[in-house]
């Protein structure tokens, strides 16, 4: 008795649910309503696509996001025949990097800040000021190597922000794909390897001469010194080179000390610090 009653109840419930769904569907509830709605909506669809065919007479103009009309173009063909026409990119867009080597003081800041380490700089000290940059910094370092590997670059733009002379900028060129990956490594150095060698040698000779002069002076001062500290000479030499490089650097002292070794450890702990924090908060 009881189960059958229950079944009866359930069947009734299901029935009412079905009725509800049918009622919700509106015009679809009847056979002819269905057909009418089918014809109507099909016709609407056809009209819509015919409208698009009609509007395909005109193409939308390739205007950039900065243009006032940008959102005004609602109809027409959107296709852009890319190599032949292109959307203008915003002025502050971040695309391919360019270094104006004339203005670069080879301070290495860009290489330090780069999160993916794609800038490689090999500085060579000069014996005197090489030139002044267009904004008045004096350039005292040659870049034997100034490579930016655009294949690794994540286009964060940090390097351009830190650059003190604003010689490193992002251009509007974005289509620079290559078949050979190495070709994406851009060399900006204005020295050929042979020239770089020469500059290196010139600097070494300069230092050697300086050292010799210093030694001669020292020797003159302390006439009767024991030759024992000779062993320390090379160490002194290293120190001397560092100090001597610093000494000629006059007012813009901030530019000269290219000591990435100091800054790197500062950056890395920052990353490490944040990492252990995360599991802490989760726990």
């Amino acid at each position: 008795m009881l189960p059958s009653r229950k079944n009866f109840f359930w069947s009734f419930r299901n029935f009412s649910i079905q009725r509800m769904q049918v009622n919700v569907k509106g015009a679809n509830s009847s056979y002819f309503g269905n057909i009418r709605e089918g014809i109507k909506s099909s016709w609407e669809g056809l009209k819509l696509s015919l409208k698009h065919i009609f509007e395909a007479r005109r193409s939308r103009k390739p205007i950039g996001v900065a243009d006032k009309e940008y959102f005004g173009q609602q109809t027409g063909i959107v296709t852009l025949k890319y190599p032949y026409e292109a959307l203008p990119v915003p002025d502050n867009g971040r695309y391919r990097l360019h270094n104006e080597m004339e203005d670069c003081i080879v301070c290495d800041k860009c290489a330090e800040i780069c999160p993916v380490d794609c800038i490689e700089i090999e500085p060579v000290k000069a014996t005197e000021e090489i030139r002044k940059t267009s904004d008045g910094h004096s350039v005292r370092l040659y870049a034997a190597k100034f490579d930016i590997d655009m294949a690794k670059c994540c286009f964060c733009g940090l390097c351009t922000t830190v650059c003190p002379t604003e010689c490193l900028t992002m251009t509007k060129t974005y289509d620079f794909s290559e078949f050979i990956m190495d070709n994406l490594n851009y060399h900006f150095s204005d020295l050929s390897p042979a020239e770089a060698e020469l500059k290196k040698k010139a600097y070494e000779d300069f230092q050697a001469a300086k050292l010799a002069a210093k030694n001669a002076a020292n020797a003159a001062k302390a006439n009767a010194e024991a030759p024992a500290p000779k062993a320390e000479v090379p160490r002194k030499e290293v120190l001397a080179t560092e100090t001597s490089a610093e000494t000629p650097a006059n007012p813009p002292a901030e530019n000269t000390p290219p000591k990435p070794v100091i800054k790197r450890p500062v950056m890395k702990p920052v990353i490490k610090k944040t990492d252990p924090n995360l599991p802490d908060t989760q726990a």
């Binding site: 696509s49 698009h52 065919i53 395909a56 063909i77 296709t79 025949k81």
Partner: peptide, 13 residues
């Protein structure tokens, strides 16, 4: 071409 125009494209060019 018809499909392209309906979809606001240019089609083969």
């Amino acid at each position: 071409k018809v499909s392209a125009f309906i979809q606001d494209r240019l089609g083969p060019m």
